[in-house]
Amino acid sequence: MSIQHFRVALIPFFAAFCLPVFAHPETLVKVKDAEDQLGARVGYIELDLNSGKILESFRPEERFPMMSTFKVLLCGAVLSRVDAGQEQLGRRIHYSQNDLVKYSPVTEKHLTDGMTVRELCSAAITMSDNTAANLLLTTIGGPKELTAFLHNMGDHVTRLDRWEPELNEAIPNDERDTTMPAAMATTLRKLLTGELLTLASRQQLIDWMEADKVAGPLLRSALPAGWFIADKSGASERGSRGIIAALGPDGKPSRIVVIYTTGSQATMDERNRQIAEIGASLIKHW
């Protein structure tokens, strides 16, 4: 058993032996400061991975655009179909130039040979490839079927209504393609630790998130040596930015963190910096 498999397999085991986890309101002070700095709403939640207890939250039940963070949920739905014998990670999917949409750094290189379902999930999560996400959405029946999958998990909040890139429109008060921090954190925890997916599929999902290559300026920039993080970021119109993550010290995840912001006029660099500073406060007061 690899170190990674050891880590995921023991998450339920550690729940019975973990020390009490204490919240630190200092992080919420930073979240509120980020709102002031960005001139935008910020949603935040910090969840204990083992118990599911909410440690801190700010606007946990307000809607925010999901942006590309939905791609983790999408690959969770794909893995659920794999577990049920309805899909194979090794199945190759062929597509054409007409299928390519904006920001497809991986799929645009494989027009001649296509990509496997496994490769598409990797591209969608680690590189946020939009065509990969659309191709995967097609395999499960489209955005409405992803919403149905989430409903069956008990998440009646999170919804996907459109495809890439239209889902990134982020119109104020538009509930399409949105979630709430509390709903996203709970759903992510179920995917990573619950019985919905097999152990192998849970491991695969967290491996893809751990290999994320496009979230460096966010929480990863504040991470001390030896800490673990598996994450997925997102960005969209109207100053929207977000990240969902499982992270913790000693090389294993122990908390879920979800951060969303929307409605800012700030630059992408400034949005990144504010999220990184929230992460730094979280780690300092861990």
Rank of each mutant, 00 (worst) to 15 (best):
G251E: 07
R7H: 11
L38Q: 05
R220L: 01
T126H: 11
Q265L: 11
L55V: 08
L205I: 07
P249H: 02
D250H: 10
P224S: 02
G43V: 00
Y44P: 00
C121S: 04
G52D: 05
I171V: 13
A245P: 00
G216R: 06
L136V: 05
E145S: 10
L218Q: 02
W163R: 07
S254Q: 14
G226H: 07
L135V: 11
G279C: 10
R7G: 14
H94R: 12
P217S: 10
H285P: 00
Q265P: 14
I283T: 04
Q265H: 14
S57R: 10
R176H: 07
G194A: 12
E62V: 06
L223T: 11
E237S: 12
F149Y: 14
Q86A: 13
K213Q: 13
L10G: 09
S96R: 14
M268D: 06
R41Y: 08
T158I: 01
A15L: 15
L10V: 13
I275F: 11
K252L: 09
R91T: 07
T131Y: 04
G239A: 03
H156Q: 13
I244C: 05
P25L: 08
A215Q: 03
L160R: 01
D99S: 14
K53Q: 14
H5T: 14
F70C: 04
L89N: 03
D36N: 14
I206T: 12
K53H: 10
V31A: 05
E169S: 13
I275Y: 02
T178C: 05
A266R: 12
V117C: 02
Q204E: 11
A215H: 03
H285T: 09
R92G: 04
I11G: 09
N173H: 12
L219Y: 00
S201V: 02
S96Y: 11
M66C: 04
A230G: 07
A200D: 14
S240L: 03
H94P: 07
I244G: 00
L28M: 07
T179P: 00
D48V: 03
L49A: 06
S57I: 03
T267Y: 04
R41P: 08
L111R: 07
A182G: 14
L136M: 07
L282F: 03
E166F: 12
G216Q: 11
E169Y: 09
C18L: 10
I54S: 05
P12S: 14
D207R: 14
R91F: 03
N168C: 06
Y44Q: 00
E195V: 04
G242A: 10
D99R: 08
Y103F: 07
Q4H: 12
N50S: 15
P143Q: 02
D48A: 06
R41S: 08
A40S: 10
S254R: 09
G239S: 06
A276S: 10
T267R: 09
R81V: 04
L196R: 15
Q4D: 08
S57E: 12
V82A: 10
K32R: 09
L223A: 06
L247P: 00
H5Y: 12
Y260D: 00
T178R: 01
P20R: 14
K213N: 08
A222D: 06
R271T: 13
A132G: 03
D161A: 04
P249Q: 05
G52A: 05
M127T: 10
H24R: 08
D48N: 04
G251N: 14
T198A: 10
S236E: 04
S240A: 15
V214C: 09
H285Y: 10
R241C: 05
I140S: 02
T126N: 04
L282V: 11
P60Y: 05
T186F: 15
G279S: 07
L219G: 01
E108D: 10
P65K: 05
D269R: 09
R7T: 12
D250N: 13
A246H: 01
P253D: 03
Q204R: 09
M268H: 07
N173I: 08
E277S: 10
D174S: 05
G90D: 15
N98K: 15
I3K: 15
E164G: 00
A222W: 04
